[in-house]
Amino acid sequence: MDNGESSYRRFLAGDNEGLHEIICAYRAGLILYLNSFVQDIHTAEELTEDTFFELMKKRPKFSGKSSFKTWLYAIGRNITAKYLRKHKKLSVVPLEEQDNFSDEENIEGDYIKNEQKRVVHKAMHRLKLEYRQILYLSYFEGFSNSEAAVIMKKSSNQIKALLYNAKKALRSELERSGFEYEE
């Protein structure tokens, strides 16, 4: 039994600490995942709060057919889909707001790493929404193809093809922007 599932069971039994544990464990990752849809970190935070509020208020039944994290991310995705249908407009977070350079000894190395991350971030946001989603779920959140299939409501074969095409599209975007791969 994974920690999220046991915490949720405790919450359903009346222990509010269980919900607190779920929020602490999954909040940051869920915000970043939902941000891949809305491209506005503040909206993603609100949608994450809505996801946890739905757990608290509606107390949906967890069937155990997938991992708790997969189930939770699917709830967040559904809430975000409702939000997007209602608002139908995406806004972009300016990349300049995301530049944070440290005062550590290796400022040049940090600068290069941050610049590479920025280039990858820009390239990912030029991809189709589905490509951004599958890349985020697979590489940033570490979901398996079957878990990503549940979250995205697709078959495993569709996920494999989507992941292949997303990586190909990202590579093409990176090459177009002059990105150099490290050996």
Score class of each variant (00 low, 15 high):
12 L>K: 14
1 M>F: 05
172 S>A: 10
173 E>H: 01
180 E>A: 09
152 M>T: 06
53 F>T: 15
131 Y>H: 11
93 V>H: 11
30 L>A: 06
37 F>M: 05
151 I>Y: 05
161 A>V: 15
19 L>D: 03
158 Q>I: 10
177 S>T: 15
58 K>T: 08
97 E>H: 15
129 L>G: 04
109 G>V: 11
20 H>N: 14
49 E>L: 13
101 F>H: 03
132 R>K: 03
95 L>I: 08
41 I>N: 01
98 Q>L: 15
82 K>Y: 08
53 F>Q: 13
89 K>I: 14
127 L>R: 05
10 R>D: 13
114 N>W: 02
159 I>E: 00
75 I>P: 01
163 L>I: 02
153 K>Y: 07
24 C>H: 14
170 L>G: 03
178 G>E: 00
104 E>G: 12
85 R>C: 07
65 K>L: 14
78 N>I: 05
181 Y>G: 09
10 R>I: 01
52 F>V: 01
100 N>I: 09
51 T>Q: 06
122 K>G: 03
8 Y>W: 00
100 N>P: 07
167 K>D: 06
100 N>Q: 08
95 L>M: 09
182 E>R: 14
134 I>F: 07
170 L>H: 00
30 L>Q: 00
10 R>N: 15
111 Y>N: 09
48 T>P: 05
152 M>H: 02
96 E>Q: 11
110 D>F: 12
109 G>L: 14
79 I>N: 00
127 L>N: 03
57 K>S: 11
31 I>V: 15
1 M>Q: 07
85 R>Y: 11
142 G>E: 00
153 K>M: 05
63 S>L: 11
15 D>W: 10
77 R>H: 11
111 Y>L: 15
141 E>L: 15
25 A>E: 12
168 K>G: 00
41 I>W: 06
33 Y>N: 07
114 N>A: 06
12 L>P: 07
45 E>Q: 08
126 R>A: 12
97 E>F: 15
59 R>V: 00
134 I>S: 04
23 I>D: 05
169 A>W: 04
42 H>I: 02
162 L>V: 04
99 D>L: 15
141 E>Q: 12
155 S>D: 07
55 L>C: 03
41 I>T: 13
19 L>K: 02
46 E>F: 08
183 E>F: 03
106 N>S: 14
177 S>I: 10
75 I>F: 04
21 E>F: 12
120 V>K: 09
45 E>I: 01
143 F>M: 03
129 L>D: 11
12 L>A: 07
145 N>W: 04
165 N>Q: 10
158 Q>N: 13
155 S>V: 08
125 H>V: 04
57 K>C: 06
28 A>L: 13
125 H>F: 13
147 E>N: 02
7 S>Y: 07
115 E>S: 12
71 W>C: 02
5 E>F: 08
22 I>N: 01
74 A>P: 00
64 G>P: 11
153 K>Q: 12
12 L>V: 08
90 L>R: 10
58 K>C: 10
121 H>A: 07
45 E>V: 04
116 Q>Y: 13
72 L>F: 02
173 E>V: 02
40 D>E: 03
130 E>T: 03
77 R>E: 09
88 K>D: 10
43 T>Y: 00
104 E>M: 11
92 V>T: 13
84 L>R: 02
